[in-house]
Design a protein around this nucleic acid. Structure first.
Lengths: 240, 240
DNA sequence: ACCTTGACGATTGTCTAGCAAGTATTCACG
DNA sequence: CGTGAATACTTGCTAGACAATCGTCAAGGT
């Protein structure tokens, strides 16, 4: 269950000599993001310790790591659970995303920078057009992450990554991910890249606001909240 | 040394029933931000445990908390030290600040929102005009924090607070804080607030970029780097 | 003289064991 | 059926210990 065979062969094939608590935290995070853990079941320290065959302080540290990341929530003397992430949290996460990405687009457009990774990610979105809707999540995330990383700021990238973790967390809550048309996503991404090449940061930021706002309200609706007006399609792209 | 008398009276006067590790982390953070700890001295786990009279895992948790905040750095099996924060780190921190605050100003201007707390903070800056240069740091920080908090996003505020912690950390490295004229700071803040009231987000964002860019390069120069061209005064405000 | 290697101290990572305190559940009783 | 107390469970924290690793430094070989 853990990619860590015993304790003696800590350095065998992998160059990454991750600590035990990191290994536990990583596997736990993967299980959470994959949706294997519901918000109802409780993540006891002793329970996680026994499942991973580690001591309780180690499991405790791993849990606290994930709590700091926002994927788990825990009160004092209370057992940890997977974060709830209701409609208000989703809106807050997407608002923070929009703040970061809007400004990033403006600054990228001011130097007419079109990140190569984003172009490739958008091509990958088109490639999986026929597959499952879940397969589009990864390239979609990669597109936005590449935009953020293009500014070359260590802290901005770190901040965005924590937000992405929460986004993926609330996406696992939605089983049917047919929230958006793949073609629409790809087309809007393409337009954003074009606007970057044109140096029109203002238009790119506005389009991104639309893009994220629609995804946000669709996600809110899928979680159980009431979708806002941003959920509707743009008038120029409504299918006949 | 710790506002926590023994272990039995965990709830005595303070309403804040902080845990022991939080109390240690808070006091440690205060000492770091106050400049009481240099980057040269090493923060050993056992050392911290003995000074605060707690067990080693408790001190370890507190140290790891501060490492996660970015105030301490520590490699594997290596002792923790106060973060170095050279010129490149300072530029990265201020870049992230600028990204967040620029977009915040744009959105605040779009609804012509002028946060009352920011107005008050700027008045406080003018009030301490005759005092020490160190006294202007607190209202200055408060001005910018109020702008961020005005958008009402829990995550954006949290993100910004972590950046502010790092800013204050590298400010403690500079003993002589005569980096900027108090009058200039106050005047630019005032102009930003006016632009918010006018709804001109673009101009507010540009002025903020100048404002932060100048502070950033002055700070870079003060800690040993070579200041960029942003350090100079605006042509309209150069004193005769 | 320089480089490699070995040893040693210091520090961290992890474990075991346990006690105290707080929370949640359950069960008896009115 | 509702309420309060007893109980089990979980967490917060401590003490002690051992292994692994890093840094330094000295000894030895080339």
């Amino acid at each position: 269950m853990l990619d860590y065979e015993g304790k003696v062969v800590s350095v065998a094939v992998r160059v990454s000599a991750t600590s035990i608590v990191d290994a536990v935290a990583n596997d736990l995070r993967a299980r959470i993001l994959q949706g294997g853990l519901s918000t109802k079941i409780s993540l006891t320290e002793t329970e996680t310790a026994t499942t991973y065959d580690v001591a309780r302080p180690t499991a405790k540290a791993a849990i606290e790591k994930l709590v700091a990341e926002g994927l788990l929530v825990r009160g004092a003397h209370k057992t940890a659970r997977v974060a709830e992430l209701g409609p208000d949290s989703v809106r807050d996460i997407y608002l923070a995303r929009a703040y970061l990405e809007s400004e990033v687009l403006r600054r990228l457009a001011s130097v007419r920078a079109v990140p190569a990774g984003a172009v490739r990610a958008n091509l990958d979105i088109a490639a999986v057009s026929g597959g499952s809707a879940m397969d589009v999540v990864e390239p979609d995330m990669r597109f936005h992450t590449c935009l953020i990383d293009a500014v070359g700021s260590e802290r901005i990238s770190k901040i965005y990554r924590s937000l992405v973790g929460e986004v993926r967390l609330c996406m696992t809550r939605v089983q049917s991910l047919n929230l958006l048309d793949t073609g629409l996503i790809q087309a809007e991404h393409q337009r954003i890249l074009e606007l970057l090449a044109d140096g029109d940061g203002q238009a790119a930021a506005l389009l991104l606001d639309e893009h994220l706002g629609r995804a946000r309200e669709r996600l809110v609706e899928a979680i159980g909240g009431t979708a806002g007006p941003e959920a509707r399609l743009p008038s120029s792209l409504i299918p006949l």
